[in-house]
Nucleic acid binder design. Structure first.
Length: 120
RNA sequence: CGAUGGCAGAUGAUCGCUGGCGAGUCUCGCGUUGGCGGGACUUGCUGGAGGAAAGUCCGAACACCAUACGGCGGCAUGCCGCGUAAAAGACGCGGGCAUCACGGUUGAAAAACUGCGGUGACGGAGAGUGUCACAGAAAAGACACCGCCGGUUCUUUGGCAGCAAAGUGCAGGCAAGGGUGAAAAGGCGAGGUAAGAGCUCACCGCUCGCGGAGUAAUUCGCGAGGCAUGAAAAACCCCAUGCGGUGCAAGACAAAACAGAGGAAGGGCAGCCGGCCCGUUUGAUCCUCGGGUAUCGUCGCAUCACGGUCCCGCGACCGCGGGACUGGGCUCUCGUCCCGCGAUUGCGGGUCGGGAGAGAUAAAUGAUCAUCCCGGCUGAGAAAUUGGCCGGACAGAAUUCGGCUUAUCGCCAUCAAAAU
RNA sequence: GCCGGUGUAGCUUAACGUUAGAGCGACUGAAUCGUAAUCAGUAGAUGGAGGUUCGAUUCCUCCCGCCGGCU
């Protein structure tokens, strides 16, 4: 088991396959917020939870999409030790997320994660 | 304001992402040992967005498609020269011509000459088809509304009469003037005429020829012709020239299941046929094979299928594979020196030396904080100075390169006679 | 990433290069006790910027938006 002080968040901890996104979309529990939409599905014996991010063209230019995705990744990375295990999570950024600050996105994430019961 | 060129906030802390090269621990597979290959975790060093990476508007490389040739069609290009991989297929630089604006000189003016700058998809309307609304007589083989001119019929008036004047009708001549229009059939002046007309003449324009200058576009001079040639080809079209198509989601490789082909073994299993033993045959089983896929990948693809020396492994040598060091080529960049052009800045070329050379695939290059820097607003202070707030753009590689276009807060350097 | 198509009133659509029309909708008025239907009338548009042309929705160039195809 990793040390608690490590905040590393490599690619293995992210969802990368279309089939994985399809599974979360099919089985997942959806929580909708103003800035984000969060889906979480239970996957038995998968170890530490994995997260995928969706930033569509609706958010704006490539720069805006990259910024939102990087911020979301950073937020999840910082809170990864609070996450429960055996979850696959998909975070979809809504249009207002393009102009939201880092703090606003973080608050939204914490609120939705608690409602989805993936954070204690 | 403008033109050209350059830059695209800096430093640090903490936590990360991704490529490359390693190290350690654990573990899996293969192998008789040495070892080889993979996975997980920890960790070290090192590289990591742009001037437009954008739009995908041109062009090229590269790959595949009948090594793709000819014709039709289609598309593109279209003053000249040079540069570049790039004929007129991108673009840049210089020149020519046209046109526009402004300035200067001459002039009473019109205009002419000249300077600086802007613009130009700048072959052909002297091959054909079509178009030119409204207005206007007429809009393209010119025409005649008003008008001008002489002839003639009739009427009126004047006159003794020949005749003259006015009006009217008819058949003619003319295109000067008026008016319309975006545009009216060379312009202007003189002669000429009934009135007129390139009908004739001078000048200008146009066309052709000859000669000079220039690589050429073109231009200058001389001579001739005699007005024929309205606009528009970003209408169709004609002429000349060029172009095969598709695009890295191009394409190459590896590769399961199912189906297929060939074979084997055994009479061990199931079915069919013949009444049965048994035989025939089909399926299942096992092996092999080729083609094409799903999925997951590898390559294409990250400057170069370059050279040398040494070491290691297989190996008698040759050779093959891997590694280390080193040298070279290419591109960019910095510095030094030299050469050519130029009055300087500079431009072009070369020598030597230093530095650099992103590469993913749900897609890295980041987040937070602090300090400083730059710009704007503002408070305190006599000033030096100091405090607060806001802002630091446009924008994110996706096969690569050369251009073009578009977006862009600002800062720096140089230039800027006049006009705008 | 690569390659195509398309843009006219609020909506659906017309328009040889010479005044942008139509239907539905909106608004105003008439009529009705009132509403609908009906009748009369009004407003409203060429995605943007340049260019060619006497004149551009139309022809050309560059941007902008929308839609689609290719693993």
């Amino acid at each position: 088991m990793k040390r608690a002080s490590s905040f590393s968040f490599p690619k293995q901890r992210r969802l990368t396959r279309p089939s994985e996104y399809e599974r979360v979309k099919r089985d997942g529990l959806v929580r909708r917020g103003k800035l984000l939409m969060l889906s979480a599905a239970t996957v038995e014996n998968s170890g530490r939870s994995r997260v995928g991010f969706i930033t569509s063209r609706r958010l704006g230019s490539a720069v805006a999409r990259n910024r939102v995705r990087r911020r979301l990744r950073e937020i999840v990375r910082r809170h990864q030790h609070d996450l429960r295990q055996d979850f696959w999570i998909v975070i979809v950024a809504r249009r207002d997320a393009a102009t939201a600050s880092y703090r606003a996105l973080e608050d939204e994430w914490l609120r939705l994660a608690k409602r989805a019961s993936i954070l204690p």
